Simulated assay, not measured.
Amino acid sequence: MTDTLHTDLLRLAREAAHRAGELLRDGRPADLAVAATKSSPIDVVTEMDLAAEKLITDLISGHRPDDGFLGEEGASSEGTSGIRWVIDPLDGTVNYLYGLPTWAVSIAAELHGETVVGVVAAPMRGETYGAVRGGGAWAADARGRERVLACRPAPPMDQALVSTGFNYVTEVRSHQAEVAARLIPKLRDIRRSGSAAVDLCDVAAGRLDGYYERGLNAWDFAAGDLIAREAGALTGGRPGERPSRDLTVAGTPGVFEPLQRLLEDFGAWHD
């Protein structure tokens, strides 16, 4: 029963992510503008974020009317089935607003609070990433050809390529910049893509050795966290904790724990 349920949830997540990705890629207006702001004037929502979330929730509700939702742009309902969909309809909104290609649709399905399915569609890359809990992780190209994902063998820390992101609240960003400045000499380099979901999938795909960020919400990391773990990466927050707004960390085994310790030493989780 559970395997059948997971298969059904994955199929629905893939369809919703694909259709939302097509809407965002093909329907982006030339005069795209900010529709609202969130945590600060530079933390923006566009009309396309809202349209993509509506498409996703309408599609899923049409198939599974008893499920709950948690969405970045306001979708929130408890549901009665034990399934909750955690949705970021457009992860990387500022990239999308500026016409940069690194953005994604992120959809996860939780069963009684545990993430069991995750899908991240990155239309401008022509890639979709996915995972089922206990079933491994995969990536599919624009033609639907799939490959198994596996994170990289761990390099020495001074050869590790790590990605991060910055908050939209000025005081938090300033502290994050200080942490990054202390971390850079310990690593090969730091990258900043602008999409947490894509960064987590890049850890899964072996394109990054590690990733960390402060201030993420569940919809930012739910799908990507599962995909990274199913590809063999380790994920967490502060030592001994799960990913949270305080801190989200992912890395290939051998990089994850040293990176996590450095971030704790540098106080990455607080001002």
Results as ranks from 00 to 15, higher is better:
T7S: 11
L12N: 02
R14K: 12
E15Q: 15
R25D: 00
D26S: 08
A33L: 10
A35I: 07
A35N: 02
A36D: 11
T37A: 13
K38L: 15
D43R: 08
V45I: 13
M48R: 02
I56G: 00
I56W: 04
T57P: 01
T57V: 08
D58R: 06
D58V: 06
L59W: 06
D66W: 09
G68P: 05
E72C: 03
A75T: 00
S76G: 03
E78G: 03
G82H: 05
W85R: 01
I87Q: 06
I87E: 03
D88N: 09
L90Y: 06
T93W: 02
A109C: 05
G113A: 04
E114F: 14
A121R: 13
G130S: 06
G130N: 03
R133T: 12
R133D: 10
W138F: 14
A140R: 11
D141S: 07
V148W: 07
L149S: 04
A150E: 14
R152T: 07
A154S: 11
M157C: 06
D158H: 15
S163Q: 09
F166R: 13
E171H: 15
R173H: 13
H175V: 05
K186N: 09
R188P: 00
D189Q: 14
A196T: 14
A196I: 09
A197I: 08
L200I: 11
L200G: 10
L200T: 13
C201N: 02
V203R: 09
A204Y: 01
G206D: 07
L208D: 01
Y211K: 01
Y212W: 10
N217L: 15
N217R: 14
W219C: 12
F221N: 05
D225K: 07
L226E: 00
I227V: 08
E230W: 02
A231K: 01
L234V: 10
T235A: 07
T248C: 12
G251K: 02
V255N: 01
L259T: 02
Q260H: 02
L262W: 07
L263T: 08
H270D: 05
D271E: 15
